[in-house]
Computed example of a mutant assay.
Amino acid sequence: MFDELKQDVIEQSRVIGIDKIGFASVDVFSTLKERLKQQQENQYQSGFEKGTIEERTTPRKLMPEAQSIISIALAYPSKLENAPRSTKGDRRGQFCRASWGTDYHDILRDRLEQLGQFLKEKHPDAQYKIMVDTGELADKEVAVRAGLGFTGKNTVLITPEFGSYVYIGEMITNIPFEPDQPLEEDCGDCNLCVDTCPTGALIQGGQLNAQKCIAFLTQTKDYLPDEYRAKIGNRLYGCDTCQVVCPKNKGKNFHFHEEMEPDPDVVKPRLKPLLRISNREFKETFGPMAGSWRGKKPIQRNAIIALANYKDQTAVDELIHGMKHDPRPMIRGTAAWALGKIGSEAGKVAIQEAQEKESDESALAEMEKGLNYFRAPQS
């Protein structure tokens, strides 16, 4: 009976727009458990992880009745059509591909909920629990066990059909579906992602030091550590380097889902307007995207750093305004640092003026860093 139900679920998944589906057992993820312990010991975790190691590796801790897991993948676009150009005096930042279009959490939850309702219609005793990215289970590990793909050296799921440009999520259920077989594939001798990672966040053996990963760093809300400011370039949210260089992604660009299509002006926005964007404007423009989940503060900080990396002289007035009037010390301080890096005389005078009125120690420290560029010019 369950073999027939499995085929029904697979067919329904195609009907509702799921690009790939697989089935996994609810056995403990023993290898993952050891890796998570090692990550914890090495302090490689981002801090965004949910649940204990036991909860993250033991499906029945999350659903005692669990008998199997359904894993799904949806392919997303990798190429931006009609991308606006970033030009001198009109510089733009960029959101990573995983933040293009509507928030993928919402898209996958919708597909999984539709699948869950179908399951209950076919089998009224069915129970299910949906997770997408923010749940305890490691989506990628479930997908690998379900045969959707394999883990690359860049630590992301790579599928044969769509490369790594896929969103994944899963559903734990009390239905004992027969598990699928994992793929026997790996990266071989290729080491491009490890060698190209801007911050060296990828560790040999397929581990990620999240504390050094630009995708993580762009989402933090405090000052960005000095050593990473130049490395983020014009990234406002996320990083695609380890995916872009991957040979498995060559020629992979899929436009199957209308809600994933990006607005070019939103995913590559002008930087200067971001410095004074209101909460309402931010929510209206960027709210539907996954990249907005941490609010506007990290995006504005990253925009300031991007303007500094461009050494955009036309941004000096905006940065002075932010340094003198923004109520948030981190924004004031980062703007002062950026003025120093850009190196205009007006910026120098403004930093000195701001110093006299500034009371926050962290902002004062950044102002001193800004002035140090004038004392000993750096590239």
Results as ranks from 00 to 15, higher is better:
residue 151 T to F: 02
residue 152 G to P: 10
residue 152 G to S: 11
residue 152 G to W: 04
residue 153 K to H: 11
residue 153 K to I: 06
residue 153 K to G: 12
residue 154 N to D: 03
residue 154 N to F: 02
residue 155 T to N: 14
residue 155 T to E: 15
residue 156 V to R: 02
residue 156 V to W: 04
residue 156 V to S: 08
residue 157 L to G: 03
residue 157 L to W: 06
residue 157 L to Q: 03
residue 158 I to Q: 04
residue 158 I to E: 00
residue 158 I to R: 00
residue 159 T to E: 08
residue 159 T to P: 09
residue 159 T to R: 00
residue 160 P to A: 06
residue 160 P to E: 05
residue 161 E to Q: 15
residue 161 E to P: 11
residue 161 E to F: 08
residue 161 E to D: 15
residue 162 F to D: 13
residue 162 F to A: 09
residue 164 S to Q: 15
residue 165 Y to P: 10
residue 165 Y to Q: 15
residue 166 V to F: 01
residue 166 V to T: 09
residue 167 Y to D: 11
residue 167 Y to V: 12
residue 168 I to Q: 06
residue 169 G to V: 04
residue 169 G to F: 00
residue 169 G to R: 05
residue 170 E to D: 05
residue 170 E to M: 03
residue 170 E to N: 02
residue 171 M to I: 09
residue 171 M to G: 13
residue 171 M to E: 08
residue 171 M to C: 11
residue 171 M to S: 12
residue 171 M to L: 15
residue 172 I to L: 15
residue 172 I to S: 09
residue 173 T to K: 06
residue 173 T to G: 11
residue 174 N to V: 10
residue 174 N to D: 15
residue 175 I to L: 08
residue 175 I to R: 01
residue 176 P to Y: 06
residue 177 F to A: 08
residue 177 F to M: 05
residue 178 E to K: 09
residue 178 E to D: 12
residue 178 E to M: 05
residue 179 P to V: 01
residue 179 P to E: 01
residue 180 D to R: 03
residue 180 D to I: 06
residue 180 D to F: 01
residue 181 Q to R: 07
residue 181 Q to L: 09
residue 181 Q to N: 11
residue 181 Q to K: 11
residue 182 P to Q: 03
residue 183 L to Y: 00
residue 184 E to S: 07
residue 184 E to F: 00
residue 184 E to L: 01
residue 184 E to W: 01
residue 184 E to T: 03
residue 184 E to N: 05
residue 185 E to A: 08
residue 185 E to R: 02
residue 185 E to K: 03
residue 185 E to Q: 10
residue 186 D to W: 00
residue 186 D to V: 02
residue 186 D to R: 05
residue 186 D to G: 09
residue 188 G to W: 05
residue 190 C to R: 05
residue 190 C to T: 06
residue 190 C to H: 04
residue 191 N to K: 12
residue 191 N to F: 09
residue 191 N to D: 15
residue 191 N to Q: 14
residue 192 L to N: 11
residue 192 L to R: 11
residue 193 C to V: 11
residue 193 C to W: 06
residue 193 C to R: 08
residue 194 V to M: 12
residue 194 V to F: 14
residue 194 V to D: 11
residue 195 D to R: 11
residue 196 T to Y: 01
residue 196 T to H: 07
residue 197 C to G: 04
residue 197 C to V: 03
residue 197 C to R: 06
residue 198 P to F: 15
residue 198 P to N: 13
residue 199 T to W: 07
residue 199 T to R: 08
residue 199 T to F: 09
residue 199 T to Y: 10
residue 200 G to R: 01
residue 200 G to Y: 03
residue 201 A to E: 10
residue 202 L to G: 10
residue 202 L to A: 12
residue 202 L to N: 12
residue 202 L to I: 13
residue 202 L to R: 09
residue 202 L to D: 12
residue 202 L to M: 10
residue 203 I to P: 10
residue 203 I to C: 06
residue 204 Q to D: 14
residue 205 G to T: 08
residue 205 G to S: 09
residue 206 G to F: 02
residue 206 G to T: 03
residue 206 G to N: 04
residue 206 G to S: 02
residue 207 Q to D: 14
residue 207 Q to N: 15
residue 208 L to I: 11
residue 209 N to K: 03
residue 210 A to M: 14
residue 211 Q to Y: 07
residue 211 Q to M: 14
residue 211 Q to K: 15
residue 211 Q to H: 11
residue 211 Q to F: 08
residue 212 K to Y: 13
residue 212 K to H: 13
